[in-house]
């Protein structure tokens, strides 16, 4: 429980911090933080239940896609600005790092496993955001025609 609360707090800090590094406009920071926290909660809870890495990441990216799209419209920013910060706790950057580090230890099976896992996480995140876009397209169809372009 302590771990859960602490990591959720860290997820908030990470999302806002990476948004600042990527230089998003200030009005997107709050949305990025909220989306990051919600997706982290989804990831953490599902990670306790499932032993696969695909399902929790997919679900978390789904949350990012739906909530991020809603908040992007709410705060009037392009949706990428929300994704950048919100996905940072999920993206397989550290995993890619430790994979390549295994090369220097000559541990081939660990390298192959790491490459496979990194690819799986990246693909499931991309698919989660993509599937969320299908829903967004259905929900916001009328409004989009009126307001965009």
């Amino acid at each position: 429980m302590v771990n859960f609360l602490f990591s959720t707090f860290l997820a908030l800090l990470s999302s806002i911090g990476f948004s600042i590094i990527a230089n998003v406009p200030q009005r997107a920071l709050l949305g990025a933080g909220m989306t990051g926290v919600c997706s982290w909660i989804a990831y953490y809870l599902l990670n306790l239940v499932y032993h696969s890495i695909v399902v929790p990441n997919f679900a978390a990216a789904l949350v990012v896609g739906v909530l991020g799209f809603y908040l992007a419209r709410r705060f009037r920013v392009p949706v990428t600005m929300i994704y950048v910060g919100a996905l940072i706790s999920l993206v397989p950057g550290g995993m890619a790092f430790s994979t390549l580090q295994k090369i220097s230890e000559n541990n081939l099976s660990a390298v192959l496993k790491g490459l496979f896992n990194t690819g799986c996480v990246a693909i499931s995140l991309a698919l989660g955001v993509g599937v969320a876009n299908i829903f967004n397209g259905i929900f916001y169809k009328k409004k989009r025609v009126a307001s965009e372009r």
């Binding site: 990470s14 911090g17 990476f18 590094i21 990527a22 950048v84 996905l87 940072i88 993206v91 397989p92 950057g93 550290g94 890619a96 790092f97 430790s98 990194t118 990246a122 693909i123 995140l125 991309a126 698919l127 955001v129 993509g130």
Partner: peptide, 22 residues
């Protein structure tokens, strides 16, 4: 080390790359 490289690793670039391929 794993934590400290987080601001520098291109995890987001990898995810975006796959989104672009899709």
């Amino acid at each position: 080390i794993l934590g400290a490289v987080m601001p520098l690793v291109p995890g987001l670039a990898m995810t975006n790359a796959i989104r672009e391929i899709i």
